[in-house]
Design a protein around this nucleic acid. Structure first.
Lengths: 245, 245
DNA sequence: AAGTGGTCTAGACCACCAT
DNA sequence: TGGTGGTCTAGACCACTTA
């Protein structure tokens, strides 16, 4: 049971513990929503004190990878919880409370990655990808048009039926069905103008200003797993970003 | 020397320590850039163990309020360091490396807060404010137009001369001259169209798409101290936002 | 060499949850 | 009631900075 760690020189012990723990998480040793072994057990397994083990888990908690529940255990962070619904969804009404989006899938196609997509997804040009177009409505009005690119390899049996049959977020589907846990996103925003096709879908005039968001979603080890271009009608909604605290 | 803490029931000791420490920081007991007393000294002063004291400071570090330097001390985070230059500045070239902005002050006026401004700044309608318009250039081309509103009360002697004579960021000026430490910002983004006046200043056509950013900057205790509306020409630049990690 | 923050340990006790 | 995470302590030793 006692698993001695290979200590890389000049690396703190708790970082080593965190690294090994992350490995186990990435390899699916415990399932999403499931509890990890108790802190005492993990400390014993890695041959470190509880304090050191806790410091490793502290960082995983700060990164949103796991969640502690006093008296209950430490769990893999789930994309299903309402609490996390808005962790990666940043469009809110300019006035009033947050709204839950309703998603309509407009297109589901298979294709091949071009140069830019391959580079950003860490795959090869021409590798098979899935291309998905979703229209997101808030308060029953279309607000966001999403175009996504996924490496086919990571989502072997994903079909339009499976995608639209989900009863939760897309990231929950990635996690529950494909064991892919989105931990981090990087977004780049610009202002653009609606072309005729997009204008029709979003119900705005051609040439209306739209917020364009280019997102890359990452899982463990900063491996990219999804590209997404979102076009947002910001007439009655806006994008929020809080830095610090 | 030993200062016993009033322990609020059901509040962990380290949270109390953090609260008292934050009070001292907010009241300027130590100056920006200056070192706090050593951890051992602070632990003794508050009558807690070093471990507890460290846990309090851990949170202040996570919030960017203070910075630890091994072998040297714990310092109030400074807005002057290059490292922090881009902590609150999120516009980068779409291609290539980050660029440092050059600021030109176009207007410096005194006025009175309207309803919306007063509400967001936590002051009363009609209270005196400063209105500043800055044009920010990247690689010698105008890219961002900033309109700022500051409560006059917090910046008693701020003049156009003092503003433009600074050799550092505006937030460094707030910190160094007025003891106001910007810790957090909240931003709301939308897409908009350039009107004639703005188009001329930014060198774009009227009706060109611009990224509009509404920012509120906060200091200790989440007290708002600045409103800022930025209009960004995103033809060759973009706004970045990384969530997680 | 003295002083600072960084790591690691071992153990006690508490608050909470499930049973 | 037993197991879990949460807090707090006391002390040892290490790594780094400054003078």
């Amino acid at each position: 049971m006692n698993q001695v760690l290979d200590r890389a020189v000049a690396a703190p012990l708790y970082k080593e513990v965190k690294r090994v723990l992350t490995q186990s998480l990435a390899q699916g040793e415990w399932q999403p929503g499931e509890a990890l072994p108790s802190e005492a057990r993990l400390a014993q397994r890695y041959g470190v004190s509880i304090g050191t083990l806790r410091k490793a888990i502290d960082e995983l908690v700060a990164e949103g990878v796991v969640v502690r529940r006093q008296g209950s255990g430490t769990f893999i962070a789930s994309h299903g919880a309402n609490r996390l619904m808005f962790h990666f969804f940043h469009v809110v009404p300019r006035e009033g409370d947050k709204q839950y989006p309703r998603t309509t899938t407009l297109a589901f196609r298979r294709g091949r990655a071009d140069g830019a997509q391959a580079a950003r997804l860490g795959i090869s040009v021409g590798d098979p990808v899935l291309r998905i177009r979703n229209l997101l409505s808030l308060a029953d009005k279309p607000v966001i048009l999403d175009d996504m690119v996924l490496p086919q390899r990571l989502f072997p049996d994903l079909s339009e039926r499976i995608l639209t049959a989900r009863d939760n977020t897309i990231y929950h589907l990635y996690q529950a069905r494909y064991g892919i846990n989105v931990l981090r996103t990087a977004e780049r925003l610009r202002a653009s103008l609606a072309d005729a096709e997009v204008a029709k879908l979003l119900g705005v005039r051609k040439g209306a200003p739209l917020l364009a968001i280019d997102r890359v979603a990452y899982t463990y080890h900063n491996a990219p797993i999804e590209l997404r271009r979102s076009l947002v009608n910001t007439a009655e909604h806006e994008y929020f970003s809080d830095i610090g605290k």
